[in-house]
């Protein structure tokens, strides 16, 4: 009975989890892990494929590992995935005309705020005593 339960359980489990085998080469595996963190799991809200255990994330991890093992560079793998899924796969938005306001915005706001703080410091300034 117990054995039957284990087998049944294993079938349920197996249906949900695809094979996932880490790369044997530790350096390549480390590269894969870093790349996982930059790629978005397409069915999740904001998780990377590193942080998710959705089926698609597991598949994509396998795909990235395969390509790394096949000697592809990170840039080549990214390009391939962008071709397949679009820019939405990248958690770090590419820098281009459409994303310039996004990348510069925070620093422009900080610079403007810094200027206002500078003015406030001058306006309220008193001699140190």
């Amino acid at each position: 009975m117990k054995v039957a339960l284990v087998i049944l359980a294993a079938i349920i489990l197996g249906a949900a989890g695809a094979p996932e085998r880490p790369l044997d080469d530790a350096v390549l595996e480390a590269r894969a892990l870093d790349l996982f963190k930059e790629l978005r799991c397409p069915t999740c809200v904001a998780q990377s494929i590193h942080d998710s255990n959705a089926d698609i994330a597991i598949d994509l991890r396998a795909l990235v590992r395969e390509q790394i093992a096949a000697g592809q560079t990170n840039a080549q793998i990214r390009d391939y995935l962008v071709l397949r899924y679009g820019d939405v796969i990248l958690l770090r938005p590419p820098v281009n005309n459409a994303t310039l306001p996004l990348w510069l915005g925070p620093w422009l706001i900080f610079a403007l705020g810094g200027f206002l703080v500078f003015l406030a410091l001058r306006r309220h300034r008193t001699a140190p005593d």
Binding site: G86, D87, I89, P106
Partner: peptide, 13 residues
């Protein structure tokens, strides 16, 4: 074309 803004963006800003 849709894009994602994730952890790497916030880590950089």
């Amino acid at each position: 074309s849709p894009l994602s803004v994730g952890a790497p963006f916030y880590t950089a800003t």
